[in-house]
Write a protein that binds this DNA or RNA. Structure first.
Lengths: 265, 265
DNA sequence: CCAAAAGTGTTAGGGTTACACCCATGT
DNA sequence: ACATGGGTGTAACCCTAACACTTTTGG
């Protein structure tokens, strides 16, 4: 086997990714059960060793794809974890990231071991220092959600205000008043009325029929279009049907240039 | 020479530290002129390669001491920088940190090359990807200053409200109303009246003389005790003498437990 | 005596919070 | 019908932003 030699000892460099998801009720994390030593049969974040010709970002996206089938484009770096004994095999520095995935996008992956969603409050003891990394990631997510539209990565293309509220409540661990939440969210300017939007895009603002809307977005009775798989399964079918919104990326980019939004909570 | 061999290629791991300082007027950065290739005679952050038996934090503190004489205890990690070609010698991942230093604490260091403070707006083109790292560090500092008492690491043990205001204005690049700034700062609860504090500590609250205060903290005419070296040199001696404050660490820790403070600005 | 710097309080306005009723849907 | 869940507006309060004069000090 080919060998690689250096004048000074080099640590190995790996990446790990904390993938958050949301099922409509609870915040979740994607974990993989380890099939080899060390920490065999324990759960850990997807990740792996960095190749010599890729950046850490490239590495973590590749490992994510290989390990879970997730092909996402956005990861945020949490930082490097460098405790001397964090990996019993050899000295390893891990560059950790976090990302947000729609609950349904996980499709197993190649050597897919077992990738499973765990409720954030029920995660078992993890391999390596991943317990510690998870705490950092959760804290970071809670911070970021005030200033960045992180939540929308966890929902479908369209979503309802109550879904969005449950997401924020899950992440932050608090409860909000419906009306105030609604108001605040609309004030940020990053939401767009999904139905109006769709009608406008198809040039049928005035002729928009209920049937068209159902066809575009799926309604509660139409299982062929589960465009909102996240929340659809989580709450009862009773009660008034909720208005759907979508994330207004164009407007968000404009707002971001002027300093971004801030959600007080 | 001893060699170190691995089955897979390993990148080198280094650390770099962006050290911010404040001279009473402008935000500064501590840079070292490189005396060896690559990037010889260009300026760069203090830092160096990580040893196999130390964490990144330990490494950066050691390098800081060796390179600049700074013996500080608090650094915050910015993250890992892993562009494939950032170091022409070999593939190197750098874990970057930032820290705050009192302007006078830099005393040269061992192999001290030349460590110099640069005004943040006058920094020349830097070695490696340090320009990029500096932008990240500046952005991060601006964020952190809203939630953490970062500013006090840059000032002396005691400081005046105008000094503190100039610091915040330098970091954030804006101007504040004196009265509102004063009010907001006191409201955070992390400031303590330095003169009252000192008098209390010495059990002489009621007998406190002006002379005592001068002896404890130095006054504008006493060059032997330049306890506020940061601002003392920067502004004219004219005008009313300002009240001194200190950072109330005990109270800050208590406040932090309850969610911390937030400076709106 | 004058210029420069620092201390201090009030008011208007915007934003947040608290709060109650009606409507739509499915059982 | 009724239970469940969602949509909507208003009033009190707090916090922020705007604003001017006085005091101290050194020249």
């Amino acid at each position: 086997m080919e060998k690689f030699t250096y004048d000074y000892p080099h640590p190995a460099v790996a990446t790990d990714c904390v993938v958050f998801g949301f099922d409509g009720r609870e915040l979740k994390v994607l974990l993989i059960e380890r099939v080899i030593e060390p920490f065999k049969s324990m759960w850990a974040f997807p990740g792996g060793f960095m190749r010599i010709d890729e950046t850490a970002e490239e590495c973590v996206l590749r490992e994510l794809k290989e390990g879970t089938g997730l092909a996402i484009g956005n990861v945020k770096q949490l930082g490097a974890f460098s405790a001397v004994n964090r990996d019993p095999r050899e000295r390893t520095v891990s560059i950790a990231f976090y990302s947000l995935a729609r609950h349904a996008d996980v499709c197993g992956g190649d050597d897919a071991a077992k990738a499973h969603w765990w409720a954030i409050d029920d995660v078992p003891q993890l391999a390596f220092d991943h317990d510690y990394i998870l705490r950092q990631a959760t804290r970071r997510l809670r911070q970021d959600i005030h200033f960045e539209p992180v939540g929308f990565g966890l929902l479908g293309d369209t979503f309802t205000m109550p879904e969005l509220q449950r997401l924020y409540e899950s992440v932050l661990g608090v409860r909000f008043d419906r009306r105030n939440f609604h108001k605040k969210m609309l004030q940020t300017g990053i939401l767009r009325d999904a139905e109006t939007d769709a009608a406008t895009r198809f040039g049928k603002r005035h002729e928009m029929q209920k049937l068209d809307i159902d066809a575009l977005f799926g309604n509660a009775n139409d299982s062929r279009h589960t465009v909102a798989p996240v929340a659809g399964a989580a709450h009862s079918e009773r009660g008034r049907k909720a208005k759907r919104f979508s994330f207004d990326k164009e407007n968000y980019d404009r707002i971001k240039k002027n300093g971004g939004f801030r959600l007080e909570f």
